[in-house]
Amino acid sequence: MRAHPGDYELVAPGTLPAVLSLLAQEPGGWLPIAGGTDVMVQYAAGELPARKLVSIWNLPELRRIEVLPNEIQIGAGCTYTDLREHEVVSREFALLPIAASWTGGIANQNRGTIGGNIVNASPAGDSLPALMAYEAELILVSIRGERRVPYTSFHIDYRKTRLAPAELVRAVCLERRFSEYQGYARKVGPRRAQAISKVCLAALARLGDGVVEDIRIAMGSVAPVPLRLRETERIVRGQRIDPPLVQLARRTAAAETRPIDDIRSTARYRAAVGGNLVAEFLGRLSAGKIKG
C-alpha cells in the first residue's frame, strides 16, 4: 500500500543551478525525480525510502540534444520519445531509439528519461547496453562543475554507480564515428511490450574484407550491471565468421554472463539466450542481413 503523500517532501526549484545548490546543501539528502517512471512505482508500493525529493523533470538544461561536429550530447532529461524522434540519433545511433522503443508503453516513453535509466542502474535498463556498445561518456555535474566519465565503468555493482551524492548526470555523449558499423539489438522479455527484459543485447561490428575488425557486444539483465562481453569480443575480433566461430562465440558469451534466478526468469535461461543472441548477431552479420 502507498504511503502518505504528506510524509514526503517534493520541491521543484526549476533551474539546474538551483537544483545543484540544493543537492550541495545536503549531499545525498535529496532524491532527484525526473519522469517518475521508477521513483513513483516504488512510491506506489510503499517502498520508497527517500523522503525528500527534488524534481528535475523538464529542466531546460537537461532536455536538449546538441549535435556537435564530432559528438552528440543527449541531455539526461531527454525522454525515450525524444530519442525515438530525433533524426541524428536515429540515423547514427540506431540502437538507442530501438532500445527506447522497448521501454514501457508510449506513456512511459513520454516520461522516462535516459538519465533516469542510467542512475536507476537496474541491470535490466533497456538503453544501457546500447550506451555500452557506443562507449558513451557521461557529463556529470555538481555545484563544483562538470566532469566527464566513461560510461563503460560507471556501474560498479548492483544499483551502485560512480555518481557522487550531490551530482547529477547532465548529458550522455556519443562519438559520431559509427557510420561504418553494423548494429543489432534485441530484447527478450516476458512479452513484446511493457516488459522488463530477461536478456537484452546491443551489439556493433565493423567488417572489412569479411573480417571482423571491431566488435562491441553489450548485454543487460545477465549480471549485476550491464555487461560488455569482452572475452567474446576478443575471440571474434580479427576473425572471419563461420559456423564454428559462431558456436564458440555462443558458448563463450553464455559463460561470460553472470545471471541469477529471480521471479522473472532463471540464470540458465538467461545464459543460454544470451549466447543465442550473440550467435544470432554473428549469423546475421555474416549473412549481410544487418543494415549499417
Partner: peptide, 23 residues
C-alpha cells in the same frame, strides 16, 4: 497504480502520460 495498465492515461501538454506516476 504503477504505470503498467494505462487506465489513468491523460494528456499532459499534448503527450500521453500515466497520471498515477505524476506527482
Amino acid at each position: 497504480g504503477e504505470g503498467e495498465c494505462g487506465a489513468c492515461s491523460v494528456l499532459l501538454d499534448g503527450t500521453l502520460v500515466n497520471s498515477c506516476l505524476i506527482p
